[in-house]
């Protein structure tokens, strides 16, 4: 039993990892089929993993209702909305007034997606603008050199992406440098420079570290040194 519980997963990870690693260096039909087959299998496994997450969420809301925890009535809303979407998506017939069934355009599912999911998602993200503004108010009190840099970069980015930025830039006098004409204040130019030079470079530095870590962690997983994916217990 110990073999099945502890050693077999490590062997599976090792064999799968080595096979997928080596197939990159052997370009052939077998390698392509292996890659396609593996990616298809992964899509199926991930599909079930998503269902596990959903089961866990429903379990949480069921428990909330059973224990009558504060705000448990709203859990009924979540479960009812989930059931409605499931019914709309899986029912094998057209609902009255809808020309199509399942997920087709013109189905009840599509109508619910268009008139409930999309507006709520867009509003949820747009509401974040207020919270970002309030977070900015606290973060942007330039108490240190780092905070000042963050403040200046953010202000240039924000002003540079709205029409008033262009108006300010065009109102300032110009000068010649290296044969080109520049405005003393040019938010559009500064925004582009900020994004393409210091921002891209710092991100590149961070990403290089991430890639090196990914390589290290991949090797550790394949050779069974990293086993956290097995979870706790026996």
């Amino acid at each position: 039993m110990i073999f099945l519980k502890r050693q077999l997963p490590i062997i599976i990870a090792f064999v799968a990892g080595i096979m997928m690693w080596i197939r990159y260096y052997i370009p052939s039909e077998v390698s392509t089929n292996l890659e396609d087959g593996y990616l298809e299998w992964v899509r199926i496994i991930v599909g079930f993993a998503a269902i596990l997450g959903i089961l866990s969420l429903l379990q949480h809301h069921m428990l909330k209702i059973r224990m009558k925890r504060p705000g448990f009535a709203f859990s009924y809303v979540t479960i009812a909305a989930f059931a409605l979407m499931m019914f709309a998506g899986f029912a094998p017939f057209n609902f009255p007034g809808f020309a199509e069934k399942n997920m087709e355009t013109g189905s009840l599912f599509n109508w619910l997606y268009e008139f409930t999911f999309i507006p709520m998602q867009a509003t949820m993200f747009s509401v974040l603008a207020f919270f970002i503004a309030s977070a900015a108010f606290r973060a942007f009190r330039a108490r240190s050199m780092e905070a000042t840099l963050l403040l200046v970069a953010a202000i240039i980015m924000m002003v540079g992406r709205v029409p008033i930025g262009d108006l300010i830039s065009n109102a300032t006098p110009t000068f010649m440098m290296f044969g080109n004409e520049y405005h003393f204040i040019d938010f559009e130019e500064w925004t582009g420079w900020l994004l393409n030079v210091p921002n891209a470079a710092a991100k590149r530095g961070i990403l290089l570290g991430v890639y090196l870590s990914q390589i290290a962690i991949s090797i550790r997983i394949i050779f069974g040194i990293e086993r956290t994916y097995m979870g706790g217990g026996d």
């Binding site: 959903i54 009812a80 989930f82 409605l84 979407m85 499931m86 709309a88 899986f90 997920m103 998602q121």
Partner: peptide, 12 residues
């Protein structure tokens, strides 16, 4: 409601 709708959407 958003939670239930979005979870149902992703299952589909």
């Amino acid at each position: 409601l958003y939670l239930g709708i979005s979870v149902g959407y992703y299952v589909n």
